[in-house]
Amino acid sequence: MPMLDRFEQHTLKCSSSKKTHERFEILKKVLVGGCVVLCAAAGVPSEMQMRAVFAGFAVLSAVLAYYCHELHKNFVFVDYVHADID
Rank of each mutant, 00 (worst) to 15 (best):
Q9L: 04
L60M: 09
H72F: 13
A58I: 06
H69Q: 13
L4H: 11
S17G: 04
G34S: 12
Y66V: 12
K73P: 00
K13W: 08
E22R: 04
V76N: 03
A62F: 12
A83Y: 06
A62D: 13
H82V: 13
V59M: 03
F54W: 13
R23Y: 07
A62W: 13
E25W: 00
G43W: 01
D84E: 12
R51A: 05
P2G: 03
S61A: 14
A40L: 09
A55P: 00
H10E: 10
T11S: 02
K19D: 05
V78W: 00
C35N: 13
G56L: 00
D79K: 00
R6P: 02
T20M: 09
M3I: 06
I26T: 12
L60H: 14
R6M: 10
V30W: 11
L64D: 03
S15N: 04
S61P: 07
I26L: 03
K29R: 10
H21E: 00
Y67N: 12
V76T: 13
S61F: 05
T11K: 04
R51V: 00
E47V: 10
Y66T: 08
T11D: 01
K13F: 05
Y67A: 15
H10T: 08
D79N: 03
M48Q: 15
D79S: 10
G34E: 13
G34W: 09
V36K: 15
K18T: 03
M3V: 01
L31N: 04
M1Y: 14
D79I: 01
A42Y: 06
A41H: 06
S15Q: 07
M1Q: 09
A52D: 11
E8G: 12
H21R: 02
C35M: 13
L4T: 09
G34M: 12
D5I: 01
L71A: 08
N74C: 10
L38K: 03
F77W: 15
R6F: 12
